[in-house]
Every structure is written in C-alpha cells, then in structure tokens.
Design a protein around this nucleic acid. Structure first.
Lengths: 234, 234
DNA sequence: ACCAGCTCCCTTACAACGTAAGGTAACCAT
DNA sequence: ATGGTTACCTTACGTTGTAAGGGAGCTGGT
C-alpha cells in the first residue's frame, strides 16, 4: 500500500508517517507491527529501534495528526486578529474537522491513549487564550472547555456510529419495518420526515457538516450569553 | 474474582453478567475468553455454545448495560408526567450517568461497536417523544439529538482522559513547571485559578458532576430558546 | 428397555499478535 | 587495523481468538 522506499534509513518520523498512511488506507486494525514493517520494506523487530513499543507507536500516530492540526490552526491564528471570538474558534474547529475527516480512526484512538501529546495542550492553550481575550473569566473558560468536549478536534461523540445507521436501514429494508415503527414511533416518524439526502460517510452517524455546525453554534451562542453575565458581574 | 458458581448450566445471560462484572472489576482489557471462562468455572471454548464470537460477547455486554439504563429510565418516565421537558430529560440523563459511572469502560466499548443494541433505540425514541411533546419540530428534535451526543448516556467526550490529568500533574510536580507555564500560559493560569479540589475519578478528566451538569444545562437552555422560535414559526 | 441424536462442555491445535534475546554486518573514530 | 556503536534481521515465546472434533449425559421415539 505505502511506497516501499527502503533507501533512506528509517526514522521515527518515517515510521509514524507510514503508520498514519496505513491506518488511513486500511483502518486502524490493519496497523500491526509486522504489516507496518512490511510497508516500510523492513522486518517487524526493526521498528523497535525507533519506538519502544506499540503503545508508543500509537502515541506517535496521535501526536503526528495533532501536529498537523496545530500547523493548520497556527496558520489560521496568524491572520484574523480582530475577529469575534466565536468566529475565530469556529474557524479553528472546522479546520481541525477537515483534518480529522481524513483520519476517521482518530477519535477512537485518541480515546484509548493514556497520555495526551503536548501539541494538544498548546492547541487548547490557544483556545483558552481566545476566550480570556474575549473577556471570559478563568472559571467560565474552564467550563467552556469541558462543554466543547471534542468539538475543538472537529468531531462529536455520536452514539449512533456510521455503520449503525447503514446497517439499520439495510435491515429495515429487508425485515419488518412495521414492527420497528410501532416500537419506535417517534424515531421512525422523525427519520421519515428528516431522512438525510445522501450518504454522509463522515466521523459519525449523520455527522454532516450541518449537524456539526449546528451543535457548535448552539454551544458558542450559549457561552456568549454567559460571557455577557460574566463580564457584568466582574 | 466472580463467584465460581458452576452449578446451573451457563447461559448467554449468565455469561454476559459475568463479563460485565469482570470488566468492572479488572478493566475491559482483562475481559478475555479464557479469563471469563475461568471466572465461570469453565473452559474458554464452552463460551462459544452461547455466543458465536467475542464481538458478540462485547455486543452483549453493551446491550446488558443499556438494558440497565432502559430499566431505570423507564421507571423514571412512569412518574413525572407533567414535568418540563428539560427537567425530564435532565433527570434521565443524570440517571443514566449514575449507571455509566459504574462501568467506566462503556464509552470506549460503545464507540467500538459496529451495531447499536435495540435498547438504545428505544431510549432515544423516548427522548424524541419528550421533545415532540414539548413542541419541537421533527427537524429541531433531530438537531437536538445530534447536539446531545453522548450526554443522554451520561458521559461527555473529553479529550483529556482521566489518566492524562493525573500524569500531567505528577510530571509537573517533578519536572520543569516553569517551562510549561511559559509554553502554555493561559492553560496554566486557568488551572492555577481553578484547580479542582479533589480527585474526580469519573468518566473523563475533571468530569465531575458539576461540569457535566453545566454542559447539559447549556445545551438544554440553548434548545429551549430555539424551541420558542420553532413554535412561533410553525 | 434401548438407542439415536442433541446439547453442553472439553481437549487439542493453529494463526496472528506484541516483543524478548541475541546475532550480524556496516560504519566510524581512534 | 580495531573496537564500539548503530541499524537491521532471525528465532522464539506467551497470549490472544477460535476451528475441529471428541465424549458424557439427557431426551424422545420405538
């Protein structure tokens, strides 16, 4: 899958880049030491001269993608100084989302990590900076960070996974649609009325750009209202 | 760990209950076929007479916990008929949260499932019902579901995992706090001002009850405002 | 009473995984 | 030249999920 360019002598960076490429191409479950080594034209054990263990590999993969986000967001922050805080953050979150869409395994992988790469801390530091500059108290900024959850990384925790929607529709087409309609009256009515136009093979079930932006705006607007109160009180 | 009551003849239900108990006691990574069989006083391969594969085991574990939530939420819904929609949903989400706190591996496991148990659909159907009854349009109800994300299950997607906070503080206590303060000025200032009182070994970093409820109220209030507009327009 | 068949559980074995241990060949400073 | 370091390889082990098939005990038809 990845180029077998075994000329230059392998390095942590090259290994991580190949790992990201492999995960993108064939899914995170295809990312095994032997397979990755194969893609690099090398034996599995050779990887251990650049990474101490597979956990470190995965940490490095996360770190690589976060660095990608940091680069884009940093470029974004350079311009747009006088923007409204909401515009600024929305721009950053949506930019991050574009990157995450290319690495659909990231949410799951990130959730399984024990340690967070520094790059992510610097990203969040920038967010807090934006909030403080807009007049948020430390307290409200902290609350806002929690409320954002994973939105800064451009994905929403959806309990209905992408596959679930597809499989459900397939099952329904085949089996008793009537039974489901009676067991789940409101849901089926809603889906019937709403029925998404196309396939949205994104980060989560129905996680179209529109849904994401709606949620994001809902939160940003809610925080904006609280910011008003916050400034008055202080 | 679990009682070795190998008298009654094993069943899907008994296997799933033991699996949940094992995951609770020793973490999801301890849930292997051999280990689970051992806890049940049986050999690994015997489990395959009740479950076709490990994936099915995990599906069943998720299903079991969801059923637990459905039971509690159902009991909750029986009373409280005249409540405000926000009060009603908040009560349900917080009840679900109490259960999820006893199964901290659930968020990750749920995220890795390909199919969603029916119990979860019925839970969400009830939520939609509450929203519709409060005057939400199908469209806004749909949007609300997405905005809720995993809040109905009582957890928020936190990118800073529980371990991250702890390890960071440990590292900091040992190493260069000054360097971090200069690299992450806003974050360190915020943490210094906010510094959580105790340890909150919950579903996510700093995911105390307070943070969760704040986020929840922020969303509910935002939706309430949109509901007003929604009803006027229609 | 018998015995075929089914259910439930066991034993054995295999492939894939992460990785420990140690080998070898190239290179580099002395 | 030589001794050490580096980068990669070979072999092997323990753990995982699970395929294949064996055997004991219950059950129902005759």
């Amino acid at each position: 899958m990845a180029a077998r360019a075994s000329r230059q002598p392998l390095s942590r960076k090259r290994v991580l880049a190949a790992a990201v490429a492999l995960a993108d191409a064939e899914g995170i479950q295809a990312l095994t030491m032997r397979r990755l080594a194969g893609d690099l034209g090398v034996e599995a054990m050779s990887l251990y001269h650049h990474l101490p263990a597979k956990e470190a590999l995965l940490d490095g993969v996360v770190e690589t993608v976060i660095a990608e986000i940091d680069a884009v967001v940093g470029r974004l922050s350079a311009n747009g100084d006088g923007e409204d805080w909401r515009t600024r953050l929305r721009g950053q979150f949506l930019a991050a989302r574009q990157i995450m869409l290319r690495h659909p395994w990231m949410p799951g992988l990130l959730g399984s990590r024990r340690a967070i790469p520094v790059g992510l801390y610097t990203y969040y530091d920038g967010i807090v900076g934006t909030l403080l500059q807009a007049g948020f108290s430390h307290h409200l900024a902290h609350r806002a960070l929690h409320a954002f959850g994973s939105l800064p990384l451009g994905f929403a925790q959806e309990v209905f996974s992408p596959a679930a929607g597809a499989s459900m529709e397939a099952d329904v087409a085949e089996a008793d649609l009537a039974a489901m309609a009676s067991a789940l009256p409101h849901l089926t009515a809603m889906v019937a009325t709403e029925m998404h136009d196309g396939t949205d093979p994104t980060l989560g079930w129905c996680d179209s750009q529109l849904e994401f932006e709606f949620t994001l705006n809902l939160l940003l607007d809610g925080l904006e209202r609280l910011r008003g109160r916050d400034r008055i009180r202080s």
